[in-house]
Amino acid sequence: MESLEPPLHTGSSVVSVQELVKETLEAVPERYVRHDQEPQILSDNRSTETPIVPIIDLGKLSSDQTLGNQELQKLHGACKDLGIIQLVNHGIGPSLLEDLRHEIEEFFKLALSEKEKFGRRLGEFEGYGSVPLSEVKLDWGDRFLMTVNPIAKRNPRLFPELPLSLRNTLDSYIKEMQKLAMQLLCLISKCLEIEMNEMKELFEDGFQILRMTYYPPCPQPELVVGLTPHSDSCGITILHQINNVDGFQIKKDGIWTPVHILPDAFVVNVGDTMEILTNGLYNSIEHRATVNSIKERISIAMFFNPKLDSEIGPIQSLMTKESPALFRRIKMEKYVNDYSSHKLDGKSYLEKLKLRTEKAVAFEVE
């Protein structure tokens, strides 16, 4: 989800970095220069023996009890520690992923006049374009963000108006992601040893957002940020790196660390909502996107939230006298609206929902 600030105008109804780089750029325009950000780490972890982000095999989770339990504990540990995994053997066919790559690449190749039809409008967080973070500063990327579930909440000028082949492919992908997300949420319920229905009732047919992002090459990548550091507001995010170009980074032990994403693996990360539901047991990971000087990077992410009419707060069974509620309860719709109007800034929004220690009320055992 994005800020509700209106887009900047430069003779066009949409600000597009993709259009900007079609010009011969020797230096990055000032409105993209981000001296406020920590420097990029240009090395990667491809050669390290142990991957920074744990790799979880979904097939093992459904295999024999011993192997499945080991993988389940690995998942639980990853959600507590980093709040992020790479998911392999996830069951999504390579032909669908290839169709998805082709269709999204073709969308971003459309003339700006065609993409402007989906441009982000004043007062809306959905639509296509580059998103300003203040009156002057922008990320180095173009994104197309839209609500995809509940279907009744879809903006009639966005998803329904996409080119037919892209719409059909996205529809197939969304359905697969919905099934995968519910499977993961059920596994998380097992990890937490809570009633399966607690997660299911919250998230089934919940509020879901899709974001496609195009990060063009940049002549001075060290000066810009593809996506400002933040934690996601949702329960879980499933990210697919469409064209296998790295640029995803996580904040680990206070240091920005590049993540090499395995081909066709999904990155699944814990969001703020899951940190709230687990009363801080699971960690929503702060992350950002960086860019390079040679190749564009394309990604698609789906954000899975509880139903808008639900209320979120720490799950009752995860609170004890020793571990009272760390977060206040809030209606999901208000939570979404507040986050949408909040400037991306690390985990600052989650901090606002924390109860002060002296005000935390101990869990009362009946």
Results as ranks from 00 to 15, higher is better:
residue 111 A to F: 04
residue 113 S to E: 15
residue 113 S to P: 00
residue 113 S to A: 08
residue 115 K to I: 03
residue 116 E to P: 01
residue 118 F to W: 05
residue 119 G to E: 13
residue 120 R to Y: 06
residue 121 R to T: 12
residue 122 L to R: 12
residue 123 G to V: 04
residue 125 F to T: 01
residue 127 G to F: 15
residue 131 V to Q: 07
residue 138 L to T: 09
residue 139 D to F: 05
residue 140 W to C: 02
residue 140 W to M: 01
residue 142 D to A: 00
residue 143 R to I: 03
residue 143 R to W: 11
residue 143 R to N: 15
residue 143 R to K: 13
residue 144 F to V: 00
residue 144 F to T: 04
residue 149 N to C: 03
residue 149 N to L: 07
residue 150 P to I: 02
residue 153 K to S: 15
residue 153 K to A: 13
residue 155 N to W: 09
residue 157 R to N: 13
residue 160 P to G: 04
residue 167 R to D: 10
residue 169 T to D: 06
residue 169 T to W: 14
residue 170 L to P: 09
residue 170 L to F: 03
residue 172 S to K: 13
residue 175 K to V: 05
residue 178 Q to E: 15
residue 179 K to P: 00
residue 181 A to S: 14
residue 184 L to I: 10
residue 186 C to D: 11
residue 187 L to F: 12
residue 188 I to A: 05
residue 188 I to W: 08
residue 190 K to H: 10
residue 194 I to Q: 13
residue 196 M to T: 11
residue 196 M to R: 13
residue 197 N to K: 07
residue 198 E to P: 01
residue 199 M to S: 10
residue 199 M to C: 09
residue 201 E to A: 02
residue 202 L to V: 01
residue 204 E to T: 10
residue 206 G to E: 03
residue 206 G to C: 08
residue 207 F to R: 00
residue 207 F to T: 00
residue 209 I to K: 00
residue 212 M to T: 08
residue 212 M to D: 07
residue 218 C to E: 11
residue 219 P to M: 01
residue 220 Q to T: 06
residue 221 P to G: 04
